[in-house]
Amino acid sequence: MDEGDISANLVKALRDGDVESFRSFYEFFYPKVHSFAYRLTCSEWAADECAQNVFIKIWTHRNTLKVFGGNLKGLVFRIARNEIFDYYRSIKNIREYQSSLAETVRGEGEADDPVNTAQLAKIIDGVVDSMPVARRRVFILSRYRNMTNDEIAKECNISKRTVEKHISNSLAQIRLALKAYMLLIIVLFFIYG
């Protein structure tokens, strides 16, 4: 399937609201958008979120988008680039949350505590990357997007109890990883420090 076919399919998908016609366009562009986002955000979960959001935006704004005869690649780039800016705009919140979460795990640390908060934030990123898709999405919406449990339940079409369960599971997973990491670093510090 070449770009002409994809463009024709996309026009049909957007005009008729036919999601299956959207598939060829999606599968053609998704890897490119994803690796673009991954290189810029340096995080698996953020790349997944950004890439998915790009296509959701195209789909939900299909009635107002002008793709006819336009430059498809240029359109996708513009939306993807906006997603990256959105991500970096929200990263302050994310880092703040990550360090507060790291603080609660670390507790009242010593002044010469070898574990710094930036490192712990990276650990959290890694744990979020490794979470099951559904749990990760709920965690991101709740802690990084500051949505309420009710809003998340509506957005993901799951019950509020399931939302609560996902959040407590993801927090437990992060705490466990942070504690294990800190123990390891402190042990290494005393051996080699």
């Binding site: 999606y26 599968e27 490119k32 958008v33 991954y38």
Partner: peptide, 14 residues
């Protein structure tokens, strides 16, 4: 970004 680095499955992402 050619997309070749993308290790996932675009079908399941869809």
């Amino acid at each position: 970004s050619t997309g070749k680095e993308y290790g996932g499955n675009a079908g399941s992402a869809f």
